[in-house]
Nucleic acid binder design. Structure first.
Lengths: 341, 341
DNA sequence: TGTTGCGCCCAAAGCGCTTTGGATGCCGTC
DNA sequence: GACGGCATCCAAAGCGCTTTGGGCGCAACA
């Protein structure tokens, strides 16, 4: 059933039917009712592409995901992020289109998706420290928003980020306040901007307390459970082991806890952990009370807000760029305590 | 840059340019070369919606995800599944469009996405035992493929599934072979078809060995780490605790292990675990050697194969329905051993 | 020389919608 | 009674592409 057929059934012109359906004022209310009834009865739905062609809008938003064999990008937070974003898209009538591409095709994919007009805007995930996507998208003149920031990109662009430096600075300071001096950092991959900022925050807190950083305590890799376990095992077996761990996510924190308990140590007494908690739905940090002391910021909420900001930029394309910096919340769990000895 | 402008620049008709770009034979090879060069130079890319309108194909595939507050659906396996599917889509020039909808709107969303012609086919996730989506999509006459099956739906439809019953039957049998008699089942939510089949396999193995099932040992809920922990804690504190656990995923298995170790017991000696391992990228079951003894089947590979099957169905819409049942692979880890005592 | 056949190219229709620019009829007003 | 204004509707153009149904020129054939 298309518009023409529906119009014929109603003995109206396509114009009138279209206007009735789209809420334009120049159509009699009784006529509008007739049209709406008929549309519902025949399950009429305006053709997506025809409408897009006519209006020039795609009513969809693109996410380009590099389908690397290294799973970092399609990562654990992705599902929750798009769940949040998707909610907002749906509310505004947008669809989410995801292009999975080989890493080496990534930039070309952004080009492609923009030039063929498949989307009205693009959401950029997991920026690196010097991310080339930002310059490309600016040049393509398509609205976009970055979830995160790119430290070495000086141009103007819209982003939403958590204050990762501040979060890790506070976490480190908290541990120092508890008397810890040897604090390990189990970080994500440091070509990613957020990881770099987290390390910067960690280092700043150490410096402020005149604690010399020890490079053996600073680890970086993809955030998996075994990574946390292997790393913590190594470090705990050092002659001078850390008394506290800072983990970039709940996932490696689970591995760290396991290494601690394997050695007959007690988390929160012998060894402390603070982790960053993205509130991943199936890896909750405890059911009622939090297990891990954590810096917490909901990735799902970030997805929602990113979607709102991007949709707003699409609606008003020449508005000034928008930035939003969220502070992570400190939550006291059972994984921290005074430094032993 | 659109087709008309490109054609003008080349002093050719739109027809010829279109044909040159789309590889039709009736155009001189030197002309084709000119066209391709110009297209590359000007970054010409055929407009997605216009092409769709003209061809009647959307070149995209829909996934409808209920954005429930219960995170079951947007779950941990989702990211890996779509990573696999996305690879194949990309290779065939398809995009993936994801509609996030409120649970109560789910069926309507399938209708909508089909009727407005936004997608050429639909991939159905996480079917329940009696899933209404299958009848709806059949009636809408849009190609679709179910990842999983719906036990109580008798009509003909295409699906790809892991032999969940068989996997859990074998796992249970393996534990029984090791002398275990009290085996707990830490299952997913049993309105979902895969969970029901897993329980059926578990029960069959028990029955075949004349072991009476004990309903206290059969648990079902969303598969999270705390769920595994809480459940195992309860069961291990019973006067007559299980000596082995069967877990529906690595995630609750992590919680079960934690409960075991908290009690000073040793996994694989005092208590055994077999879990289903979907090979989630950031929750690998060990790095080199597997930690958990497991029934293994890659969710990412399933995503790839589902995409292939669906694309094939789209290409040949009146082919007969296709079904594919995968056997999970048994992998020996360090989490199983002879029943104690 | 006239006729085919073929290689190459083009004009125009059509996909299903939105939107511009009227047309029509009816009312009240001077 | 002519006229402007308003409410309601319509015809047709246009979005950018694909595809149908030729047209034109040249070589080969009779």
């Amino acid at each position: 059933m298309n518009l023409r057929q529906l119009a014929e059934k109603l003995n109206l012109s396509q114009t009138t039917v279209s206007r009735a359906l789209n809420g334009y004022p120049e159509v009699n209310e009784t006529t509008r009712k007739r049209v709406l009834d008929a549309a519902a009865r025949y399950h009429y739905r305006p053709n997506y592409r025809a409408r897009g062609l006519a209006t020039g809008r795609a009513m969809s938003i693109g996410h380009v995901i590099p389908a690397s064999n290294q799973p970092q990008m399609v990562n654990m937070i992705f599902a929750d992020f798009i769940a949040g974003a998707g909610e907002v898209y749906a509310r505004h009538g947008y669809d989410m289109v995801i292009s999975m591409v080989r890493d080496e095709d990534e930039l070309r994919a952004y080009r492609g998706v923009a030039e063929k007009g498949a989307v009205d805007g693009i959401l950029v995930h997991s920026p690196t420290c010097d991310d080339p996507r930002i310059a490309l998208l600016s040049q393509l003149e398509i609205p976009f928003l970055v979830h995160g920031r790119s430290s070495r990109v000086r141009s103007d662009y819209s982003w939403l980020d958590v204050n990762n430096a501040r979060a890790f600075e506070r976490a480190t300071r908290h541990l120092i306040g508890l008397g810890h001096r040897r604090i390990a950092l189990v970080n994500g991959q440091e070509q990613l901007d957020f990881a770099l900022r987290r390390r910067a925050g960690y280092l700043k807190a150490l410096r402020d307390s005149a604690i010399a950083p020890d490079s053996i305590l600073m680890r970086t890799d993809e955030m998996s459970e075994p990574y946390g376990h292997v790393t913590a095992s190594e470090l705990l077996d050092l002659p001078d082991p850390p008394t506290a761990f800072l983990a970039s996510s709940v996932v490696p924190a689970l591995g760290i806890r396991r290494a601690i308990e394997e050695r007959g140590l007690v988390m929160g007494r012998d060894v402390s952990i603070i982790c960053f908690d993205d509130r991943i739905s199936y890896l909750p940090n405890g059911l009622e009370a939090p297990i891990f002391t954590a810096m917490r910021s909901s990735i799902r909420a970030a997805g929602r807000r990113c979607a709102e900001l991007l949709i707003d930029r699409i609606a008003r394309p020449d508005s000034t760029t928008v930035t939003e910096l969220w502070e992570a919340e400190f939550v006291q769990g059972q994984s921290t305590g005074p430094a032993p000895g």
